[in-house]
Amino acid sequence: MQTKTRILDAAERVFSQHGFDGATIRDIAAEAGVPAGLVHHHGGGKEELFHRTVARRAQELSQLRLEALATRKAAGPMALRDVVCCFLEPYVRMAREGGPQWLAYARLVAHVSADPRWRGLAAEWFDPTMGRFIDEIAALHPGVPRRAVATGFVYSVAAMLAHVTSGWRIAALAGEQEATAVAEDLVTFCAAGVEAALRPH
């Protein structure tokens, strides 16, 4: 089990740095400190390993998001900002507190989101949870086309990935020495963006 975890961690780092096409099984084996044969044994071929690497944290993240949503709904009526927060905050928290692998995972998700060939992977591991949150927003704004909600939500995911991986750019442009991106700022920005996407309708 430890060897499999080490291989998946290494795959996460290598895929996040080089993308699917730039990564090799040999690179992943070297990063994990194991023979290439062990990578094949625990992860299969490169595409299967990519799928397993994406799926591993997607399950945990989905559970955290749905738990946050259920807890908030139990507390009383929700606003759009609450729904957006329940989706974004769990990942931002894991990226901050869960160690560097969660940062690598953000870059990996960015690769998946940007490449239509991973449509099936996204549909399996991300879309059911995103669909649940889109349903919640749509229920708050009856009559608004689902496309408008989906547009605002996809833009919000892109902002979340930028928030997690590009805090250093904010710091550089602000003339600061250290990245100090704040989750509350992200939620405010994304909630306003979703509202703007819904407003014409």
Rank of each mutant, 00 (worst) to 15 (best):
R96L: 10
W125S: 05
M130T: 07
P116L: 06
E47F: 13
I137D: 02
W168S: 13
D82H: 08
G120F: 13
E47A: 13
E12K: 14
Q63K: 11
A181N: 11
C85A: 15
V187S: 08
A197W: 00
I137C: 05
D185M: 07
R117N: 03
M94T: 15
R146T: 06
P145W: 07
G193E: 04
E89I: 09
A192G: 15
V157S: 10
A68H: 03
A174P: 01
P90R: 04
R132Y: 08
G167Q: 00
E31N: 09
I28L: 04
A58S: 15
G99L: 02
F20T: 08
R65W: 00
V39L: 07
G120Q: 12
D185Q: 11
A23Y: 02
A58N: 13
A138M: 13
V34R: 05
A123Y: 06
V92G: 08
L186M: 01
D185L: 08
C190T: 10
Y91F: 15
L38I: 07
V144N: 07
H201C: 11
E47C: 05
A171S: 08
P200Q: 02
T188H: 08
A75I: 10
V154L: 15
S156A: 15
T129E: 06
H18R: 12
L140D: 00
A30P: 06
V109S: 00
K46A: 02
G22W: 07
D9L: 14
L198R: 05
T165N: 09
L140H: 00
L108Q: 04
P116M: 06
A179G: 07
D135N: 01
W118F: 06
V157Y: 13
R56S: 09
L49R: 08
V34D: 01
E184C: 10
F20Y: 14
F153S: 04
A79R: 14
G131V: 00
L49H: 10
E178A: 12
L49I: 10
M130Q: 08
P77W: 02
R96H: 11
P200Y: 01
G76E: 00
R199K: 13
R57Q: 13
A36D: 10
E89V: 14
P77V: 01
P200K: 05
H18L: 06
K4R: 15
L49K: 07
L103R: 09
R72F: 11
H40Y: 10
A30H: 11
R26Y: 14
E178W: 11
K73R: 14
A181V: 12
G98T: 07
F20I: 08
A10N: 02
K4H: 10
L61A: 14
G131I: 00
L121N: 01
T151Q: 11
C85W: 03
I137T: 05
Q177S: 13
L186W: 00
R96F: 09
L88K: 12
V109Y: 00
P77C: 03
T188Y: 09
A11L: 09
A10L: 02
R132I: 10
E184R: 13
Y105T: 04
E60Y: 15
D135P: 02
A159K: 14
K4P: 03
S113I: 14
G19M: 01
W168R: 12
G44A: 06
A32Y: 04
E184V: 10
L140C: 03
E48T: 12
A174D: 03
G152D: 05
T165I: 04
Q17K: 14
V83A: 00
I7A: 01
G152R: 06
E12D: 09
F189I: 07
R26C: 10
T180P: 03
Q17N: 14
V84S: 00
